[in-house]
Amino acid sequence: MGIIRSQDDFLHVRSVKAYGDGALGSRGAALIKPYSDAPHQHGLLLTQPEDFPQSSTASVRRGFPA
């Protein structure tokens, strides 16, 4: 299954988005060093770096653009 378009045209899926980490404002961005205003916080990795090659390859195989 790749690009999806419903018959009633209410749903059209034509891309895939992968999240590596969060946003800076919420202190979710993964940092090497702790945040200067929150020394206990390094952020959060949502997807492990080693998972990206397999995910992107699977998406391309299913017809999504690279």
Rank of each mutant, 00 (worst) to 15 (best):
G2S: 07
G2K: 07
G2D: 09
G2N: 08
I3Q: 10
I4D: 07
I4P: 08
R5D: 01
R5T: 09
R5M: 05
S6T: 12
Q7I: 13
Q7M: 13
D8H: 11
D8P: 07
D8V: 09
H12F: 13
V13Q: 04
R14K: 14
R14C: 12
R14M: 14
S15L: 11
S15F: 10
K17P: 04
A18P: 05
Y19Q: 08
G20D: 09
G20H: 08
G20L: 01
D21T: 04
G22A: 00
G22R: 03
G22T: 01
A23L: 01
L24A: 15
G25F: 10
S26K: 13
R27Q: 11
R27F: 13
G28R: 10
A29N: 12
A30S: 05
I32E: 03
K33D: 08
K33V: 04
K33Y: 04
P34Q: 05
P34F: 03
Y35A: 02
A38R: 00
P39E: 09
Q41L: 02
Q41G: 00
H42T: 02
H42P: 01
G43V: 06
G43W: 00
L44I: 15
L45Y: 01
L46F: 15
L46S: 12
L46T: 14
T47P: 04
T47D: 01
T47N: 04
T47I: 02
Q48R: 11
Q48T: 06
Q48S: 07
P49H: 00
E50Y: 12
F52Q: 00
F52S: 02
P53T: 02
Q54W: 13
S55L: 13
S56I: 12
S56Q: 08
T57S: 14
T57Q: 15
A58T: 12
A58W: 07
V60G: 09
V60D: 10
G63V: 00
F64D: 01
P65T: 00
P65V: 01
A66R: 05
A66E: 13
